[in-house]
């Protein structure tokens, strides 16, 4: 049986000047999978995310994204907004919201991204524009409820708590109707109870919305409980792949990574 891959990363190499950030990385994600990428700081995890979303353009290799089985979309060479439109959504390591806007407006911007531009329509505000606005409002409210931020709809996003910012970012990403959601350290800066809630939310995104999840996370307990499969990056290369149990038992991983992190975790 052939595997239904949503992401297929084939021998990707990314360099900045003389520094090799990703070295011949090959990995894939199955549709519907919660996949995690772990590795020590500077291993190239965020560079990988940026290469998957069109922010960085790797010099070698290919990244194929399949929004639907049988379709394929070459990520490399595309601008970030095109990748996003194709169905890849993401959050950022240090959360990046539109901080002068409310929670509601933040999510609505995501919800509107699929509609055409229409400055003239906006200035005339015809029935079509108003219908679009109502649709986006509806979707925004739905997502606010989904992530549990309905009470904060009119809060300026920069005054939200860390945990709520993460939820907002997830909701904004989901508003673009993605097939896969890339989460860059979603639990960073959150407290233990927020962490649990966040893990529930991530599972719910996959189970209820059917969105595949690709995750970078330092919190080992969270990763091991969430992820169905993991890749381990070190110095820009994949050094191991497997289920949480396999990774825990992997010698190379322990010496390169878990050995140190297990102590300070």
């Amino acid at each position: 049986m052939s595997i239904d891959k949503i992401f297929d990363v084939d021998r990707v190499t990314l360099r900045f000047g003389g520094v090799v950030s990703l070295n011949d990385v090959t990995l894939h994600q199955q549709r519907g999978e919660i996949l995690a990428i772990i590795g020590p700081n500077g291993a190239g995890k965020t560079s990988l995310f940026n290469s998957l979303t069109g922010v960085y353009q790797p010099q070698e290799g290919s990244v194929t994204f399949c929004a639907q089985p049988g379709e394929s979309f070459d990520v490399i060479g595309k601008k970030a907004h095109r990748v996003a439109k194709a169905g890849v959504a993401r959050t950022f390591q240090a959360s990046r919201m539109f901080s002068a806007l409310t929670t509601f407006e933040n999510i609505k911007i995501g919800a509107e991204s699929h509609r055409g531009i229409g400055a003239v329509g906006a200035m005339l505000r015809g029935p079509g524009t108003r219908r679009d606005e109502r649709k986006s409002d509806g979707k925004t409210i739905e997502l606010l409820r989904f992530v549990g931020l309905e009470g904060q709809a009119n809060t300026i996003s920069s005054s939200l708590s860390y945990g709520d910012r993460r939820r907002l970012e997830i909701a904004r990403a989901l508003a673009t109707e993605p097939q896969v959601l890339l989460l860059d350290e979603p639990a960073a800066g959150t407290n233990p109870s927020e962490k649990l809630a966040l893990a529930d939310l991530i599972r719910k995104v996959r189970d209820v919305m059917g969105v595949s999840i690709l995750l970078i996370e330092h919190d080992m307990k969270l990763v091991m409980s969430l992820a169905e499969r993991l890749y381990v990056l070190n110095f820009g290369s994949v050094i191991a792949e497997g289920t949480p149990d396999e990774i825990r038992a992997n010698e190379a991983v322990i010496s390169a990574y878990l050995g140190t992190t297990a102590e300070d975790a």
Binding site: T53, G54, A80, H81, A84, F92, K108, A119, A122, A173
Partner: peptide, 25 residues
Amino acid sequence: LLEHSRVGRAWTAIREDEVAAESVG
């Protein structure tokens, strides 16, 4: 009307954080 339309919101988004704006398409 333009300011309070999706176009106006998109401008605000770009002004504040272009990378994040691109990430939502």
